[in-house]
Design a protein around this nucleic acid. Structure first.
Lengths: 325, 325
DNA sequence: TTGTAGGCGTTATCAA
DNA sequence: TTGATAACGCCTACAA
């Protein structure tokens, strides 16, 4: 495969001139410019991007760290990132971690190795301290709140989102309120747990541990929740469900087994997935797509200007009352 | 940032020795090995992966071309690809195209530029001739059938899948059978259209153009379908819906507006999404995840052995009868 | 077991 | 306007 030196020889110019032509720099005579393009044509030349990356020390590639892709939340976030990246001429390198710390470290190491210009962390498992170590190796933007660390982040205010829904339920008279969550670790989950404690505590309700349903990620988990709920002696009268997928699973399975929603069990989902509208589900709308977009923009600005963005932007959530809660 | 030469100086050895140590080659004395690692530690060295890529002419990166990510079909395929890639130590570079030919060409150009070792095409818009031009620039594996081109592919046999469902409906006595599809171009869509013509033709049914509902990609499109269906004078009695998401939208909206399923309208979805099971939907299970896995494996084998895989593997689909059709 | 030196393909500086 | 040449950082014959 022809390289820039072959071109130079063919066109009868220097490699420097070839490079200038290829990159559209001024100060090249029309004549030589033409000769170079002809050589490009003749030798069927294409630039080797690796060499460019090495020489420039930049790649216009951004890494995206996330546990898995086949999930409505993460695929919405990526879509937002991807849309902006496309617009700005950046490429996306995927780092699927399955929430394994080892994988997260691999991604961070790749940042050190300068495989990409920056990294967007959608969700993580390792301690923030681990991430802090890599801060000097390249720009990192988070999609989660990092309390006590001055990372640059765009995040959804899950405390406020949860609190909002809880107060709504309290106002409707509910006292036995439980919730379903994907996993208990992670900043988002902890923000919710804090809101749960605080808001229920403010009205003197003592939540029961068994009112918290862990491992709720996918539609089919909703079935499990209903089954467990039916087996309980003191059932919650309302559930906050941190994913509309799971909430939909709950609502649909409840319907099937004859549990009346919201009379016997009020259900409030999160996300405002199309499914929520379709099922008439009360839900808290979360701006996932915008989260991805903004995270990329933040990183992009950082990369292009070199100015560290001292940003920690909070994206608001909005309760949408429909029929299930 | 320290480089391999700094290490050599620090450790009092040559760069070749450093490289050997770093890459775990034999024939290095324990003493020097130790000295190198100490230098690594001391200088806080990390290898620059770009330089490695350039020197080796390989990247262990695979490109994935797909129209969008936030879609159950594509995110399942990627998940399959990603899982295998992770296992084999490969990374994924995303090329979101929005079905724009221009974007597809950009991805192919990147293959030429040797940004990645190979490319998996999940779905495309450009003519196969365009892809054929780039075949010599790197291994390309397709997730769609390419009739008349000897690309290497793994694909779901959509003709068989569609035909299977159609015959089932015919057996049940349906004659006015329509279908909903994402877009009409693309090999998968054309395979379905062919099955539709052939199977209906075989029993002398002349399908009406308005029985084909285009642009059905997401849950919310199902609502539109029902609305249009209700406005029709000669309504289909059954619909094949090429996405369970859309089928779910149809079933749920039908329920809402009082259309009885399957009595007034039989619905058969595709994918076997968890939603289908939850809603008791009859559906044709499609192995999306396996498709991604196998596509990666095919490419991987090609990359590692250098042997062109003359594979064109057809993945079967399976009708799952539940309650909607 | 070790080192030297050339190569990978571009970009960028500096002098002309 | 142009060209030589030194980076960029690593790998790898080949020679010792």
């Amino acid at each position: 495969m022809a390289n820039i030196r072959d071109l130079a020889k063919e066109a009868g110019v220097s490699v420097a001139t070839v490079s200038r032509v290829l990159n559209g720099y001024p100060y090249v005579s029309e004549e030589k410019r033409k000769a170079v393009w002809e050589a490009v044509e003749k030798l069927n030349y294409t630039k080797n991007i690796q060499a460019v990356h090495l020489a420039k020390g930049k790649t216009r590639i951004v890494g995206v760290m996330l546990p898995y892709i086949h999930h409505p939340y993460f695929s919405a976030v990526i879509e937002g990132i991807s849309k902006e990246a496309l617009r700005c001429g950046y490429q996306l390198l995927l780092f699927q971690t399955n929430y394994e710390v080892k994988r997260e470290l691999e991604a961070l190491e790749r940042l050190r190795m300068k495989q990409m210009d920056g990294l967007i962390v959608c969700s993580h498992e390792a301690d923030w301290e681990v991430f802090a170590v890599y801060r000097e190796d390249g720009p990192i933007v988070l999609c989660e709140r990092a309390v006590g660390h001055d990372f640059f982040t765009v995040y959804i205010d899950h405390y406020q989102a949860f609190a909002q829904a809880l107060r709504y339920l309290l106002d409707k008279g509910h006292r036995r309120i439980g919730y379903c969550i994907g996993r208990t670790t992670g900043p988002n989950s902890q923000a919710r747990a804090a809101a749960y404690r605080d808001v229920l505590g403010s009205v003197g309700v003592i939540p029961q541990p068994q009112w918290i349903f862990d491992g709720c990620l996918f539609l089919e988990d909703g079935k499990r929740v209903i089954e467990r709920w039916m087996d309980m002696k003191e059932r919650p009268s309302a559930l906050l469900v941190t994913s509309d997928q799971v909430a939909a699973g709950i609502v649909l399975h409840a319907q099937r087994v004859g549990v009346h929603i919201p009379e016997e069990l009020a259900v409030i989902g999160f996300d405002n997935d199309p499914l929520a509208e379709m099922l008439g589900m009360t839900t808290v709308a979360l701006p996932h797509f915008a989260l991805g977009e903004k995270a990329f923009r933040l990183l992009h600005h950082w990369l292009e200007t070199g100015n560290v963005p001292r940003t920690q932007e909070e994206l608001p959530a909005r309760l949408i009352v429909r029929m299930t809660g």
